[in-house]
Amino acid sequence: MPKDECIVIIPCSGIGKSLGTIGRKATYEIVDRLCPKNTRTTCLALVTMGDQETLKMIKENPCITIDGCPSKCAQKNVEASNGRLIRSFLVTDTLRNHRNLKPDGIIELNAEGLKLANALAEEVAKTVDEISGGKS
């Protein structure tokens, strides 16, 4: 990945479900703690509204979307805006691999929701490392 590029992690807004909160929580875990040097996030609503600065950013940088539910708003919006989508994640897929976890809460996730968010963040961080050659 070129030095001046930054991977853009775009979660769905998912305000109605715990799964949306998990996607956002995972995003902050990646951009603030796991891979702060080569990732950033942006507002999905800005992508959808066609904000020029945001559209330029998602076209010029690799993007990873994280969706809470199968409506896949983040993935579909980035695709529709011709963003450089390199990988998309779905919280429900991670949940399938951690069936013992029962996430709950939207304003505040329960402990199992936090565990799931961390597991998802680790998964995404691996992809970030693959793309950036382990320079996160």
Binding site: I10, P11, C12, S13, I15, R24, T27, T41, T42, C43, L44, A45, L46, I106, I107
Partner: peptide, 20 residues
């Protein structure tokens, strides 16, 4: 209808206030 606002703290306030 809350903005998604993932990028800025004000967006998080929007979402949490909406949920409250």
């Amino acid at each position: 209808v809350s903005c998604s606002g993932e990028e800025i703290p004000e967006g998080t306030i929007s979402r949490i206030a909406t949920r409250l």
